[in-house]
């Protein structure tokens, strides 16, 4: 075989054999009826996701547009989630103005309808990791009614 990379004549001749490969006799006579049978059996029903995938496969531009739209939606939702809505902002601003800056948090915490006003349950054993918080008084290991009994020893007994 000529190994010159620019001369593929021998390779072209060898590839000719591929054009002579034929399926078993009569294969093509039955193929279309097999396909029709599969279609009639209901193998032609597409789910939403299959239709979407089919669109992506056949039209790459649609896939790109879908990806851009999904990314845009995600980005917008991330940006939007960090900001309070206009109604929330007005409500909080109104409360702060009416009650004063110091009263606002207390009033907000006393609102029983607000699910966020209830203090979080923190188990005692968890401790507090906030260095600025006042020291936490932990329960004594000894019962409060216990009292100490004085004893005396004399040397030599």
């Amino acid at each position: 075989m000529n190994t010159n990379p620019e001369n593929f004549e021998t390779l072209r001749k060898a590839l000719a054999i591929k054009r002579h490969e034929v399926p078993p006799p009569g294969y093509f006579n039955n193929l279309s009826s097999n396909i029709a049978a599969r279609i009639e059996r209901g193998e032609c029903e597409l789910t939403f996701w299959e239709r979407l995938h089919s669109s992506f496969t056949l039209r790459p531009a649609f896939a790109y547009a879908f990806a851009i739209a999904a990314f845009g939606t995600f980005t917008a939702s991330v940006l939007h989630s960090g900001k309070p809505t206009a109604a929330q902002a007005l409500h909080q601003e109104g409360l702060a103005t009416a009650l004063g800056p110091a009263a606002a948090p207390a009033d907000f915490a006393a609102d029983n309808d607000n699910p966020f006003s209830a203090p979080l349950h923190v188990p005692n054993w968890l401790g507090n990791t906030n260095p600025g918080a006042p020291p936490q008084v932990l329960p004594s290991l000894f019962a409060p009614q216990s009292h100490a009994v004085t004893v005396s020893y004399e040397y030599g007994n």
Binding site: R12, K13, I17
Partner: peptide, 22 residues
């Protein structure tokens, strides 16, 4: 693999290829 049809033996490209003294 599918079978090679009988015309392959008369394909000039293949005849030339197989009969070359290699």
């Amino acid at each position: 693999l599918d079978d090679v049809d009988f015309n392959a033996e008369n394909d000039p490209d293949l005849v030339a290829l197989v009969s070359e003294k290699t």
